[in-house]
Design a protein around this nucleic acid. Sequence first.
DNA 1: GTGTTTGCAAAGTGTTTGCAATTTA
DNA 2: TAAATTGCAAACACTTTGCAAACAC
Lengths: 139, 139
Amino acid sequence: MILERPYSRPLEQLSSVGLRPTSQRMILAKLLFDGTRRHVTAEMLHYEVLKSQKKVSLATIYNTLHIFTKLGLLREIIVDSDCSYFDTNTTNHHHFYREDTRELIDIDESDIQIGLLPKPPEGSQITRVDMVVRTKKIY
Amino acid sequence: MILERPYSRPLEQLSSVGLRPTSQRMILAKLLFDGTRRHVTAEMLHYEVLKSQKKVSLATIYNTLHIFTKLGLLREIIVDSDCSYFDTNTTNHHHFYREDTRELIDIDESDIQIGLLPKPPEGSQITRVDMVVRTKKIY
DNA sequence: GTGTTTGCAAAGTGTTTGCAATTTA
DNA sequence: TAAATTGCAAACACTTTGCAAACAC
């Protein structure tokens, strides 16, 4: 597995998409773009912020996650109707979803071969292929 | 494409899983198990019930969809954080999701070749593989 | 009769929004 | 100082739940 971002560059991430580096965005960007692939929910991020003795309102976290997603810094992953996950890996890849821990785990695109896709419905074009391999705990 | 249920057998569907055929369940089962593959949301189903001059409360529709899902009559498909879809086709298959119309379209398992899956995370076993091919409108 | 099922209304949950105060450039 | 951003609290949409009345067997 190759990491595209070997070390943290939160400021560069923000300025690369033309966003003002406000203190809240910097706090979030540092947590998100720390060089590892992360899958976070708004609540998880909020908790991490508080844990680090800082403060960003939940509303701002939601707004920021969506802004980051719209600008291509994050990708939203829909696997659970209860909450949205945001992935710092915005390249094409897939996921295991552990239903026991509600945890997402990357599957590299190269680790799964998908054959030719059928033609999309008339008048529409494919934007993205998401494969979710759901798993449960072994008892 | 082969239909597993060439004609409607709502009563058989209910009794096969040991559910009492109450009038509400019969109304819903007739709409759902009409022999075609359907993808419905609770709201859609509610609307169809009202359109046919009948009445089932939304709460009962939600409860019934979940009971049917738990008993294997339906499969829940998660593609949109705004609402849950329920699929009358409970065999392994995949979907196109038209983001413009919010419509699900079946892709037969045989229409897509998926290579070997990576080993699932330690302590977990694969329960299901969901592929969602998202599409958008061509302008 | 007895346990199951229903429907209403209320509550719950994750998320979004309006808007005044604050911050950035 | 003009425009962007934040945070609060209220609003929101979808979904679930408590409970009394109705129903199935």
